[in-house]
Design a binder for these strands. Structure first.
Lengths: 193, 193, 193, 193
DNA sequence: GATGAATGAGTATTCATTCAT
DNA sequence: CATGAATGAATACTCATTCAT
């Protein structure tokens, strides 16, 4: 039900009517309820599904060997490029995860939250691995650092995909790789870098 | 109508009924429509109101003189502390601006967007001023840099205030100044700093 | 909401739509929900209301003094006449209590049951009083006897009001007093009397 | 389809879904519609089927010879015992006939009514026969008398089987023969007997 | 004969908004 | 200014029935 994803992404959960969803899918109301328990479950399934795909993208970036700082930056840029390209190709999913899921009901917000928790977990693993390999300093508070890192990434994603301001139809001037590289630079070296 | 702000923050725009709002405010439905044109206008006014207060906080951080890198970091930390303290004292407003406004209707999203655009504008001014004063390198793309910087700040704000994951009742372990300093460090020096 | 009572009586609970009820009452759907919590509550209120009126009728027949057997029969005939006249004037209520309430949902069935339990209790009081006054033999099992007596009365009521077979529009050939007298005779003397 | 009978008896016609019926019977929806024209026809067939069995029980009590009053009472008690035993073994059927059929649709109510008309007819024959044999007085209005008699029996059946008040799971304290004998006594001699 | 996916008309309920008092 | 009863459009969900396989 890809059309449902688009409707949720474009109009938001509450403004998407089941009658719209079934019309877009070309089936009857009854058919919808044969496959889904209800509107809420549809949204949750959509999100769970996206979570899996998103997780796969990130897990491919798992760090294996030590290397120079530049290696590290470019390897992070590669991961972010993958991520941003995935996001670019799955704008509707990202819209729900980054924006539109927030106004919805508990179960849905929970599914969205679960996705970002998994996302953060994956990044924490990567950072910890980098610390073991002495590629990054031994932070006193890794969680906080990762928290801030993930905040950076989701913040950038939101602006880049749905920029001024959070319009699903927004088209950014930057290609995924460009924004990924700039983000990676910022990730490691900040404004001064 | 401070209670309305809380209801929107806690339950979201669509799940907040006017009947709830007036009950919490202790007035009748009719009275509400004497003061507001409707539900949407209530939300917009709430946001516009918050936007002004938020802007005032940021504008106080306008950079005037050149200084060392450390001056710059600590001055930024000061601004962020002010901002984070304001956010801490205005959680309901921030919840709408950062989270709950996203699922709402066009007019409301526009008001939220307007707030962040003003926010970004203020930061851009600060960064440009810092560049003029030779405190920051001459980026090829200032907008992009500021974009990323603002993404970082809003991302951190969201997680810190409404952390795992976006719960309005979430209480962070960090004080405003702590999270502000860590963010400022990251702002200038990234993960490696 | 007398028209609702008629609709329930004529078409049954499940076949009566709220849209019918409000149309018959000349109000809007919204108005209905301002006064009632829902369809179920409407039915329950209707029944509770009828229960009170029915109870009043029966309690007037409370036996005070001893008398001959013929006194007893005629006094019972009087009570039954009152009851049957009430029933005749409140056919819609009786239809729900005797027939149409049975197919409905738990809360409604409970309200109907409660009415008959109160009804039986009132008759038991009367019978016990008659036994104290030595007007009736000391049965070994008063409850059973009253049970059978009440079964007789409700059975007769059902047939007489809604006869062949349980049609709400049925018009009996007998007047309330006639059927009441015959029932009273049967009550005390059975087929042989 | 014995399970259907139970569902109708327990939940009522309107609250029993075809999907429940087929699940309980272990067949598919399609199969149901191969054997039955629809939900209504299922109920009607169930009732017609029961009507026949019920009629057989009563017709066995057809009076053939004259006898004393006590003979008559005990012979009636025997018939009622048979009837009440049948009812006890066919609670689901009786529930529909006595209670749950009442809230249903015209065709079903008609089938239920037809059953009781046949029931009443059988009793009228018995009473007329008893009058011919001079076992009962020549009532001026036999129909009315039989009406009241049948009212008594169905009333007693309902209370005894589904007592306080009309609960399908109700278990009475009395055995069929006990309640039958008490009813027969009442039938002939009333409260005074 | 049997299956179960597909249908769509039908309905109770919600809630922002209005307006007579 | 304030009230709260009245409105009715909007909508998620149900379930008897059908029919291609």
């Amino acid at each position: 039900m890809n059309s449902a994803l688009e409707l949720f992404a474009r109009k938001g959960y509450h403004n998407t009517k089941i009658s719209d969803v079934v019309k877009a899918a070309g089936v009857s109301q009854g058919t919808f309820y044969w496959y889904f328990e209800g509107k809420e479950q549809l949204a949750v399934r959509l999100i769970e599904n996206g979570k899996e795909k998103l997780t796969q993208v990130i897990e491919q970036g798992y760090r294996k060997h030590a290397g120079s700082v530049d290696d590290m930056v470019s390897s992070s840029a590669r991961l972010l490029t993958d991520l941003f390209e995935f996001a670019d190709h799955n704008r509707n999913l990202m819209a729900i995860l980054l924006i539109k899921g927030q106004g919805a009901d508990p179960l849905i917000r929970e599914a969205v939250s679960g996705t970002w928790i998994a996302f953060e977990e994956a990044f924490k693993n990567n950072v910890n691995r980098a610390i073991e390999l002495d590629m990054l300093p031994h932070f006193t508070d890794v969680s906080l650092r990762v928290n801030i890192l993930v905040s950076l990434i989701t913040g950038v994603l939101t602006k880049w995909l749905f920029g001024p301001m959070h319009d699903v139809d927004y088209k950014s001037a930057y290609r995924p790789s460009e924004i990924a590289e700039e983000t990676a630079r910022f990730e490691f070296r900040g404004l001064l870098g």
